[in-house]
């Protein structure tokens, strides 16, 4: 595997975000929504609790829509404009190309997340949150965005149509959220044995994200997110192999 190829593609993709309005629109909307949910819907100040669980609690829902929007162009646009033919006939493997795209987009999502630093600062000003828990919250959020991104990258490789890519990614993401969403799991628990509910919930983003939010660092949660990403990136590679179907 050639790191220079991965880096070259990553740099190109990173610049592509900032060469277009996508980056700025995305950053503004992400920050505005994160602040809106946290401060207005949850009335962060009124509760006066210097607890960031509510802030992070919104992230799975924010990412559900925003990450597919940031990911949909990654391959679909290459197909539509025909540049995929250039990219995949350069001396580089499809894996290098897709990793370059993945890291550029993940870096971009991490940047968006980093820019929410005002919220924890406010919390530290209002009270005494545990810095370790805040750090784990951010770690969980970064991993979560990477998992969503890997799904978006995959659906983007399936089609030249960005809208279809977006919708597919949202549906898959929604499924992975709902499998562990309390109203859903409570409902399922009415007629299914507990082991089934837990088995399904183990597939959910929410289950593993919550552990990190609570400040619990468990290798199983890290392995879960890493596996989702690895699996989806592998699926993307296979989707690119079948690229003959334009």
């Amino acid at each position: 595997m050639s790191f220079r190829n991965i880096r070259a593609v990553a740099r190109r993709e990173w610049n592509a975000y900032f060469n277009s309005p996508i980056a700025y629109v995305f950053l503004v909307i992400f920050l505005a929504l994160a602040a809106f949910f946290t401060f207005f819907i949850d009335r962060f100040y009124e509760f006066g609790q210097a607890d960031l669980r509510r802030f992070f609690g919104w992230h799975p829902w924010l990412y559900l829509v925003l990450v597919p929007a940031a990911a949909m162009r990654l391959w679909a646009e290459e197909r539509r404009s025909g540049t995929i033919e250039l990219l995949l006939t350069l001396p580089m493997t499809p894996l290098e190309a897709l990793l370059g795209k993945f890291f550029a987009a993940w870096g971009f999502l991490a940047l968006a997340l980093l820019l929410t630093f005002v919220t924890p600062l406010t919390a530290f000003y209002l009270g005494h949150p545990d810095p370790g828990v805040v750090a784990l919250g951010y770690l969980g959020s970064v991993l979560l965005s990477g998992a969503y991104l890997a799904i978006g990258l995959f659906t983007s490789a399936l089609t030249r149509n960005q809208v279809i890519s977006f919708i597919l990614a949202v549906v898959i993401g929604l499924f992975l959220i709902l499998a562990g969403y309390p109203p859903v799991t409570d409902f399922v628990a009415r007629f299914a044995p507990q082991s089934v509910v837990e088995g399904v919930a183990a597939f959910s983003f929410l289950t593993h994200f919550d552990n990190l939010q609570r400040g619990v660092l468990d290798a199983r949660d890290l392995v879960y997110f890493a596996s989702v990403m690895a699996f989806m990136l592998f699926a993307t590679q296979e989707a690119l192999r079948g690229r003959a179907a334009r």
Binding site: R12, A16, N19, S20, S81, G82, L86, T89, P91, M92
Partner: peptide, 21 residues
């Protein structure tokens, strides 16, 4: 594929190129 492509220069049909660059 990678070694073969190193030796090849390819101009695809319709001259695709990254518009944002």
């Amino acid at each position: 594929p990678v070694e073969a492509r190193r030796r090849i220069g390819y101009l695809p049909e319709n001259a695709p190129a990254y518009g944002d660059m």
